[in-house]
Amino acid sequence: MNQFDRYTDDYNALLNESLSLVGGFNDYYLSRKVEVVKKYIGVKKIKFVLDFGCGLGDTSLMLRNAYPDAQIIGVDISELSIERAREKYQKIDFFCISDEEFIATYTACFDVIYVANVFHHVPINERVQVIGILKTMLACKGQIFFFEHNPYNPLTKWVVSRCEFDQDAILLLSRETRMLFKSSGFHIERTVYFLFFPYMFRNLSKIEDLFSWLPFGAQYCVVASLI
Rank of each mutant, 00 (worst) to 15 (best):
V192A: 01
C109D: 00
Q143N: 15
D99E: 15
T177P: 00
C96A: 09
R178C: 13
V192K: 02
K47R: 12
E83Q: 14
V37D: 03
T105Y: 14
N2W: 06
V75G: 04
L80R: 14
L195Y: 01
N125A: 05
K38Y: 04
F110Q: 03
R6A: 14
V112N: 05
F145H: 04
P68F: 10
I82D: 00
F95W: 13
Q90D: 14
P198M: 01
S183T: 06
H121K: 09
S212F: 01
M62W: 08
T156R: 02
Y152H: 10
T8M: 02
Y193F: 15
I73Q: 08
S161P: 03
Q143F: 13
S20Y: 00
L214C: 13
R32Y: 09
L173M: 10
V223P: 03
I227W: 06
S205C: 07
L173G: 06
L30F: 14
A66L: 12
D166G: 09
H187Y: 15
K44S: 11
S78W: 06
E148F: 08
K182H: 05
F119A: 05
C163Y: 08
K33D: 00
I144S: 10
K33Y: 03
Y40M: 10
K88Q: 08
I103H: 15
M1G: 15
V36I: 15
E87S: 14
V118M: 09
S183V: 08
L204P: 07
I41W: 13
S78G: 04
C96T: 12
G74K: 03
E101M: 12
L63Y: 05
Q219R: 01
D93L: 13
L204V: 11
I170M: 04
C221P: 02
T59D: 13
Q71S: 14
A116M: 13
I97C: 01
S212C: 10
L134G: 05
I97H: 07
D99K: 09
V36F: 12
H149N: 11
L19I: 00
S60V: 04
E148H: 11
D27L: 11
F165A: 06
R175Q: 01
F94M: 03
L15R: 09
I92A: 05
M179G: 00
E35M: 04
A66V: 09
E83M: 11
F110H: 01
L138N: 09
F95M: 06
D76A: 03
L180A: 00
E189Y: 10
D58S: 10
C221Q: 00
I133E: 04
S20R: 12
I46F: 12
F95T: 05
V43A: 15
I170C: 06
V22A: 00
S225T: 14
V34F: 06
I113M: 09
H120M: 11
H187P: 00
S174Y: 00
R175D: 07
F4W: 12
R175C: 03
Y7N: 09
L138A: 07
D9W: 07
V34M: 03
L63S: 09
L138S: 12
V36R: 02
